[in-house]
Nucleic acid binder design. Sequence first.
DNA 1: AGACGTTTAATTGTCTGACAAATGAAAATT
DNA 2: AATTTTCATTTGTCAGACAATTAAACGTCT
Lengths: 246, 246
Amino acid sequence: MKIDPNSPADLSAQIAKAIRDAIMSGDLLVDERLPSEAELSEQFNVSRPTVREALKRLGAQSLIRTQRGATGGAFVNRLRFEDAYGQQITTSTLLLSMNDVSFGTACEARYALERSCAALASERRTADHLATMRAETHRQSQPSLTDEAFCASDVAFHRALVDAAGNPVISYQLAGAVEAMQPLMNMITFSARSRETIVGFHSQITDALEQRDGAAVDLHLSALADYTNTLAQSVIDARQAAKTNS
Amino acid sequence: MKIDPNSPADLSAQIAKAIRDAIMSGDLLVDERLPSEAELSEQFNVSRPTVREALKRLGAQSLIRTQRGATGGAFVNRLRFEDAYGQQITTSTLLLSMNDVSFGTACEARYALERSCAALASERRTADHLATMRAETHRQSQPSLTDEAFCASDVAFHRALVDAAGNPVISYQLAGAVEAMQPLMNMITFSARSRETIVGFHSQITDALEQRDGAAVDLHLSALADYTNTLAQSVIDARQAAKTNS
DNA sequence: AGACGTTTAATTGTCTGACAAATGAAAATT
DNA sequence: AATTTTCATTTGTCAGACAATTAAACGTCT
């Protein structure tokens, strides 16, 4: 592991990259302890604050964890799916909001990917998944629910559907697509009528899943996607019209 | 934005979180300049190195960028899809390797998600996408290609297929699933026979895509998934047998 | 000998103060 | 007016110090 003091890049960035590469190449194993900050600053010939900045960078990506005390130090962190979920959701949400991704594009991505779970979920869904989905669907039928809570429940429903596919890699990959939709959905005001329709789709999806009918799940998901898109479009149109009038 | 000096968490982590929240809530807009490090250290009542550690954390997530000089400083960064790709691939690769995700699980996730692109890609594929896919398929038929280069070309082929769906959100979400497979694929030694079979599938997929036949794309993808899985299984079995004999 | 405090050494977390390097803006000069 | 010089601002880096934490080593008492 070497760094170039004359490179245009920050030293701390170079050091972070060197250590990151060592982790990714398997040179540093999970739970292995890195040299202490003092030792690293000697090895790389930089000061301790610079080493610390590099370690903080790696910590932000959950690649290492640090511990104080006599036997403390920085350790290669086993990246857990739950940790990765959070980062994935943060990144996805910011990507959508900062790049002016349209509701339609995000919605299309979400449902396209989610439909790919239909077959697997039908095979593997447990009673637990069904119970969660029914509970959320029931919650969604409460008229007292705020729009925000309705959206949150919608996300929980779809997350249960994705988890029912029983593949942690899929759950991880779709966490971003499903959760990042929430801020976009929150811009919609749901009428009692539209809530009812969505709840109906959710019931149909859950029923089909219970009967392990993957094709039906796919069909209803597709219909729900269309309906959601239509709903969003009408909101956008209405907003556009209001703008023109004012 | 306030922090708690008595919290168990690091001050730099708290500060990073405060700024991250401000960005995600829209309190800080894209390209907006943050206060200088000196000002931030006054505001949060911490030293400059601590502020810097916080900023490096945010930099590692591409949430901010920094610039030296008179009008420099830290700016809220527009998170680009290309930047997010890299992080996504890093995280996905580490997730698979650190959690002992089986080839089967990763492969299932990859093809399940990829198949969800079949319909969209059939509608929207351009001549460019087809050309890339044919070029990669042709490269794969060169016997002189190393296994590693063969895998890299395979990834490029599938990335083109995903991109053909014409939805940047899908491309982003699938970047991890597709690229993170490469290290796992690299463990397989491809015989001339198996390469030929894979190239055949790739040709069929490209043909179907050219004819905008989404169902056929889906079918061939599914067949390729099965074949890849069988291939990997035979490698694993052979390795197991060798282990037992030794 | 074994259980239980105490000390100690190692390590990260934080602070202070300083200087170097980059960079754009303002001032001076031609 | 154009060009060069100076300068102020800001990040990047360094050195050294002290506080907080923690586990292991050490003593002490039973």
